[in-house]
Amino acid sequence: SGFFRTIFSSTMGVSISVSAIFWLFIFNPSIGILNQIAAFLHLPILNWSTDPNLAMISVIISTVWMNLGFAFLVLFSAFESLPLSLYEETAIEGASPAYRFMHVTIPLISPTLFFVSIITLIESFKSFGLIDLMTAGGPN
Rank of each mutant, 00 (worst) to 15 (best):
N140G: 14
A98S: 13
G129I: 07
S77M: 08
G137D: 01
E89W: 00
A95D: 05
S30P: 00
I31W: 03
G13Y: 06
A78P: 15
V104S: 12
I57V: 12
P97S: 01
A78N: 09
G129F: 01
F4R: 11
Y99F: 04
S1N: 14
I118R: 11
F3P: 14
V74W: 08
A20P: 04
F3W: 15
G13H: 01
T112G: 04
W23D: 01
A38K: 07
I109R: 01
Y99A: 07
P29D: 14
W65N: 06
P52A: 07
F125A: 02
N67E: 13
F27T: 00
S30N: 10
I131K: 01
F40H: 11
P97Y: 00
D132P: 00
A98Q: 11
L34D: 04
F3I: 14
W65S: 10
L121K: 02
L121T: 13
S85A: 09
E80L: 13
I45F: 00
I33K: 00
F70K: 00
S85C: 01
D51L: 06
I109N: 02
G2T: 15
A20M: 11
Y87K: 08
L75S: 03
Y99D: 06
F40V: 08
L82G: 05
A39N: 03
S15R: 04
S49L: 11
L121I: 14
P139M: 09
F101G: 01
N67V: 06
V74K: 05
S96N: 04
N53K: 09
L41Q: 05
D132L: 12
S85W: 02
A39F: 00
M56S: 12
F27L: 04
T6Q: 08
P139H: 14
S96T: 13
A38Q: 02
L41V: 04
I33D: 00
S110P: 00
S81N: 11
A136C: 06
S17K: 09
R5D: 13
G94N: 14
P107A: 07
S49M: 09
F128L: 14
I119F: 10
L84G: 05
S58T: 00
S17H: 10
H42I: 08
S30T: 10
I122G: 06
A78K: 13
P97R: 00
S58L: 02
P83N: 10
L54H: 01
F101C: 03
L75P: 03
L68K: 12
